[in-house]
Structures are given as C-alpha cells and as structure tokens.
Nucleic acid binder design. Structure first.
Lengths: 105, 105
DNA sequence: ATTTTATATCGTATATTTACGAAATACGAA
DNA sequence: TTCGTATTTCGTAAATATACGATATAAAAT
C-alpha cells in the first residue's frame, strides 16, 4: 500500500473549489452579475463594461464556460452569453451547503 | 482622461473574488471544513488529513491566513489554527448576497 | 468585391500558484 | 547539551493564470 497521503480530495470539495475558482477574479464576478441581471448579454456589452482588453475578456468568458456556469450561442455576427441556469443552481447549492459548515452566532 | 477601460472593478467584486480565491483549491476547502467542524485544529492534525507534503499544507494555511479567514496561535510546540469567525461571517454574507444575483426558479 | 463590425485565437511575456524536499527554527524532553 | 517533534521557510521546478496586441474568421453593410 502507498502512503496514507495517497487519498484523493472528496468530490464535494473538488466541486466547491472549481466553482470558487470560476469566481476568483473580479472580472468574472462582474460578468456573472451582468449576465444575471439581464438574462443574457452580447460579448460586446460585456467587453465594454470590463476594464480589460477584449481578448482578455474573451479568455475570462472561456473560463466561465469551462467551469460550466456560462453558455454561449452564436447569433451572427454576435455571440450571446448567458448563465446556464441548471449549472448555476447546482453550483449555488454546493456553495450554500459549504457556507453552512460554520454557523454565524 | 484615460480610456474608459481605466475604471476599476468594484470593491464588492474584488472582495467576492478574494474570498473565492481562498476557496479555490480542494485542499483549502477541506481545511476549512476541518476547522469548522472542530472549532480549532493543530497543524499536525490538518497535515495528516491532507494528501500533500507538510510544507505544501503550510503554504495553503498561509493563503487562508492571507485571505483573513483563518487565524493561528502559537501553543508551543504546536500551532493552533481556527477560523476567524468575524471574517468568516463577512465572507459568508458576501457570498450569500452574490449567489442571490440569480434566483433558482 | 471591399470594408466594417464582432469576436476568437495566436503568440508571447510576466506573474502567480502549486508542489516537493531540504534546511532552519523553536521548544520540550532526556 | 543533544535529540526529537512540530512547523515554517527556502530553493526551485513545473503548471496555470493573466494580460496584451496582432492576426484570423465570419457575417453584414456598403
């Protein structure tokens, strides 16, 4: 048998961490707020609001997609982004549960 | 005046992102769970549970301290870690509020 | 057919994160 | 004083993240 350190992290912890990572940059937090407020946004509007180069914003959008919270659809010639409600609900539940680990007194 | 991109991110978004970053690694999520469950832990116990080298665990503890969620006290020859309740409460509030940006239907 | 608009991708530079083992520190015990 | 235990810090390597401008692509407008 290998060392006892060989245990993996729990699925739950991995998921919480993944979601947290998606929110770990102010630009991505800001984008999520925009998307939530308007149901959907074209990249255009997002990029205008975020104080970073368009190519960088694009990268952040990719990260959000990769985390699964955001989806896009091609509406030529623009791309419409929106929150994936199902995934968001999931993520929110994981996070809410995690926040319960310590009660406020 | 500089370009309109020169705006900064909001304080709120920066704070959410900072706390999120603290929770963006499964090891740190696991540590927070341990601390919350037992009120406090010696480094020893934490390091035994986390499948990483002690020096790496120490680094993760430093990150949690840096984010302000965790505090330590020296009880020779050990170090006792605990969640900073005030900061945790704060973090939790920021997150709960953020999670409200989109309601579950 | 050319230009303009919208967006992604590429190439790249720099910074940060993550990880490890070895060495340092600090203390209590023998 | 020497030894053992607990923990951090150091040195360092490798991976990932962040940012930009330039270039590519695709469709719309002219």
């Amino acid at each position: 048998m290998a060392s006892p350190k060989r245990n993996k992290f729990s699925r739950e912890d991995i998921r919480v961490a993944r979601f947290a990572k998606a929110m770990s940059h102010p630009a991505r937090v800001a984008v999520l707020r925009m998307l939530a407020a308007k149901e959907a946004c074209y990249f255009n509007e997002i990029s205008k609001k975020i104080p970073l180069a368009g190519s960088t914003v694009s990268q952040h959008m990719y990260e959000l997609k990769r985390a699964g919270i955001v989806q896009d659809s091609y509406e030529p010639p623009r791309i419409k982004y929106s929150i994936d409600s199902r995934k968001w609900k999931q993520a929110r539940r994981y996070f809410r549960d995690f926040l319960k680990i310590k009660q406020g007194k």
